[in-house]
């Protein structure tokens, strides 16, 4: 027996926690981790339904999402390093060069 409903609610909670992290935290690293958290929530739903319907296609797409997350982190960390080199900060409110 698979507790599908519980897993879906867990996935929703992880996704909402990711949104809250993006909104509330001001550190670029934590924002990047929150995005990863949201991708993980999507993965959890894919794998849950893959098991529920006995169809391995969902697992394949979960693997694709993981690849995407790895690509995203490599580019995102590159951007953070580049930003830190020019601004000397990772605080997102102080990176407001487009505003002025």
């Amino acid at each position: 027996m698979i507790p599908v409903n519980f897993l879906l609610i867990i996935a929703i909670m992880l996704f909402v926690l990711g949104i809250v992290g993006i909104v509330v935290r001001r550190n670029l690293f934590v924002i990047l981790m929150s995005i990863e958290l949201m991708l993980n929530a999507a993965n959890l739903v894919f794998i849950t339904f893959s098991r529920y319907y006995g169809n391995a296609n969902g697992q394949v797409f979960a693997l694709f999402i993981m690849t995407l997350a790895a690509a995203e982190v490599s580019v995102g960390l590159g951007i953070i390093v580049a930003v830190f080199r020019t601004h000397k900060t990772v605080h997102i409110d102080e990176i407001n060069i487009l505003k002025h």
């Binding site: 001001r26 550190n27 690293f29």
Partner: peptide, 18 residues
């Protein structure tokens, strides 16, 4: 990788939800 870059950059963490 994230831990490594955080350790590499050495920034001040005054951040938070202030």
């Amino acid at each position: 990788l994230i831990v490594y870059v955080v350790a590499l950059l050495n920034f001040d963490d005054k951040d938070l939800m202030s």
